[in-house]
């Protein structure tokens, strides 16, 4: 295969990257606008004219120009490598996300399994960054993150598995396709969240868990700025720091999109056949994802944060037992109906 022949493949593979980059620029701007509006402010207003839409570009340019600082006592290779590993893990997970009926990076049958496995790499990159920085704040942040992410993987997986029981497939494309059309009542979309009352509980568990997985308030302990300065990112600046931000926002999008696929019908239009099709499908899919992202932002600018032991308590004493019970109940429901 020459490079010319592989070009279409490269373009094919690059599509999620483009989506992530555009999304990240948009989401950072959106986060600031949401924060601004919630706090009776306006947020960025100056760069680019209308409501400061180009603020993220300005920030990006600034970050590119910044000096690349590596602490003298840092473990240099790991320090350099961690942000890229983190982003690579987030990016790789997008391979199995069905963006529209016409596009999916890799249509594999164990999509969900792959996605949950590859996002575990994020934990490693965070520990890597925290340890390599040779900074006590970074180390504390990394330790918290590791504990938090490993713990919250359990309820996440249980919630996802609940959906898989109903859907009967690990392939996310299949899961999406079976949610098209209207449900038995005739007026609600045929989305999984409406099909089983216990899936509503599963969604709540799933949503709380993805908040913790993507380090959002009230679970932003890894970088809780009033305690740990900036957690594992303390020593990072410039583009390396930007990679962390990019990975974090990509992670947010990934988990929101996963939620959209599992509970809200993926790229299916909420109006049945109306406004359907591959292009509209992409729009609806991103729209649903962004709604979840917005809710995450809304929560972030409302709540205080948990303490590290309370976070663990919430996970192991409440969410995990609840998700197991819920899992059993969903299985029972499926057997009965």
């Amino acid at each position: 295969m020459t490079w010319l022949e592989s070009l279409p493949l490269a373009v094919f593979v690059m599509i999620p990257l483009v989506i992530i980059l555009i999304y990240a620029l948009f989401a950072i701007w959106m986060e600031r606008k949401v924060a601004g509006f919630i706090q009776d402010r306006l947020g960025p207003m100056r760069v680019g004219g209308w409501h400061g839409w180009a603020q993220s570009f300005a920030d990006l340019l600034k970050l590119i120009q910044k000096e690349d600082i590596i602490p003298a006592e840092a473990s240099k290779f790991l320090f350099r490598f961690a942000p890229f590993l983190m982003f690579a893990a987030s990016y790789a997970a997008f391979a199995v996300i069905p963006f529209s009926s016409a596009y999916m990076g890799s249509n594999i049958d164990i999509g969900v399994f792959y996605l949950l496995a590859i996002t575990s790499l994020l934990t490693i990159s965070v520990i890597m960054a925290g340890w390599a920085s040779n900074n006590k704040w970074s180390l504390l942040g990394a330790m918290r993150t590791a504990a938090q992410m490993v713990s919250y993987e359990v309820p996440t997986i249980m919630a996802v598995l609940s959906v898989i029981i109903v859907a009967g497939s690990l392939n996310l494309m299949t899961v999406t396709e079976m949610q098209s059309g209207n449900d038995t009542l005739g007026f609600l979309p045929n989305w999984l969240i409406f099909q089983n009352p216990f899936l509503l509980v599963a969604f709540v568990i799933f949503f709380i868990s993805i908040l913790a997985e993507s380090h959002r308030v009230p679970f932003d302990l890894p970088e809780s700025e009033s305690e740990l300065v900036a957690g594992f990112q303390t020593e990072y600046s410039g583009m390396r720091w930007a990679m962390f931000m990019l990975a974090e926002y990509a992670d947010m999008l990934l988990l929101s999109l996963l939620g959209a696929v599992l509970f809200f019908g993926g790229w299916n239009s909420p109006f049945g056949g109306f406004m359907d099709g591959p292009i509209w499908g992409f729009f609806w899919f991103m729209f649903k994802g962004m709604i979840l992202v917005f809710v995450m932002m809304w929560i972030r600018w409302t709540l205080p944060r948990y303490r590290v032991d309370q976070l663990m308590y919430l996970c192991w004493s409440i969410l995990i037992p609840l998700s197991f019970i819920n899992f059993v109940l969903i299985a029972l429901w499926e057997m009965l109906f």
């Binding site: 009776d40 207003m45 809304w298 929560i299 409302t302």
Partner: peptide, 20 residues
């Protein structure tokens, strides 16, 4: 939590108090 979110969303649609 929902009480708090209700308050913040009201402010979200409320007017800004800052000056440009």
């Amino acid at each position: 939590i929902f009480t708090g979110m209700g308050i913040t969303i009201r402010h979200f649609f409320g007017p800004s108090v800052t000056l440009q």
